[in-house]
Simulated assay, not measured.
Amino acid sequence: MGDTRERILDVAIEVLGKNSGASMGDVAVAAGVVRRTVYGYFPSRSDLVRALTERAVDEIAALLADGATGDDAADAVWADFVAGLWPLVHRYRVLVALRRGEFGEDIHALLGGVEKSLADLVRRGQDTGAFGRHLPAGLLSQVAWSAVFAIADDDLPDETVGAAAPTLTTLLLLGVPEPRAQALIRGRP
């Protein structure tokens, strides 16, 4: 049963990625199941979007947790996080569009833990001098985090913009000097 649920989620992210207004019936057809099966796992479109968001948040949080376990500098952790985040952002890019609509509050609430962890990372970077203090840590992390989604939202489906572009952009927004940011993108300085 879990395999069917996961397959529906995999298909839903593709179907909604092509058409954020796709119906539960569209998802069912693409998954090769009847609508009743989709509704059995997800009683409403809202439940489906919530499950997709929870999956995305789990993957993003795991990425962030991987980088937070070492003693690496905050700017290096951020660079690794954004580079790892880039493919996930493309996979779940429909959530950016859905966040602007009726599901916005739910999606934002589910991302709360990730956003707190990012603010903590930026605060740590500010304390060590790796990041600028031109904005409070919470706001600065939001600006940099949002830039990744803004870039992905305008990127072409064939991912012509690689991970280096959002990584460099966010490091510069965080106040990392360009030579250091470039070195972080090329690998450990």
Score class of each variant (00 low, 15 high):
A147E: 12
Q142P: 05
H108R: 15
V122G: 09
V122Q: 05
A97F: 05
I107M: 02
F131K: 13
E102C: 05
A144W: 14
G132R: 09
F103V: 06
D127R: 14
I107V: 03
G129T: 07
T128R: 11
E102V: 13
V94A: 00
K116A: 13
L98T: 02
G101L: 05
D106Y: 04
H108D: 13
K116W: 14
H134K: 04
P136V: 13
G132N: 08
L140I: 09
A130Q: 10
G138H: 07
V122S: 14
G138S: 10
R123D: 15
V94Y: 07
H108T: 09
V94G: 01
R100I: 03
L110E: 07
G101P: 02
S146Q: 15
A147Y: 04
I107F: 02
L121M: 10
H134S: 02
G125H: 02
G112E: 07
L121I: 00
H108M: 10
Q142M: 15
E115T: 06
L121S: 05
L111Y: 15
L110Q: 11
G101A: 05
L118R: 11
A119V: 07
A119F: 14
V143Q: 06
E115W: 09
A144Y: 15
G125V: 03
L110H: 11
R100D: 07
V143A: 15
A97R: 13
A130H: 06
A119G: 09
A119T: 01
E105H: 12
D120G: 08
V94K: 00
R123N: 08
A109M: 03
V96I: 11
G113Y: 09
G132P: 04
Q126N: 05
L140E: 09
H108S: 13
A109R: 15
G101D: 02
L139V: 11
G138K: 05
L121V: 00
Q126K: 03
D127Q: 15
A97C: 04
E115K: 13
F131W: 11
P136G: 10
L135F: 15
Q126L: 03
V143W: 06
Q142D: 09
L135E: 13
G112F: 12
A119C: 12
G129F: 00
A137V: 13
A137F: 10
R123Q: 15
L95M: 06
V143H: 14
G113D: 05
V114A: 00
A147C: 13
P136Y: 15
G101S: 07
L135R: 14
A144F: 08
H134P: 00
I107Y: 06
A130W: 01
G113M: 04
F103Q: 07
Q126S: 05
G129V: 12
V143S: 12
I107W: 01
D106L: 11
L110R: 13
A147F: 12
A119W: 10
V96G: 06
G112I: 00
F103M: 08
R124T: 13
A137L: 10
V114E: 00
S146E: 14
D120S: 11
V143C: 10
K116Q: 14
R133E: 09
F131N: 13
G138M: 03
A144Q: 12
A147K: 06
V96C: 11
G129Q: 05
E102T: 03
D106M: 11
A130K: 06
P136L: 14
D127H: 15
L110C: 01
E102W: 12
G113V: 00
A97G: 07
G132D: 10
D127E: 15
L110K: 13
G132E: 04
V122H: 08
P136Q: 15
G101Q: 06
A109C: 01
L140T: 00
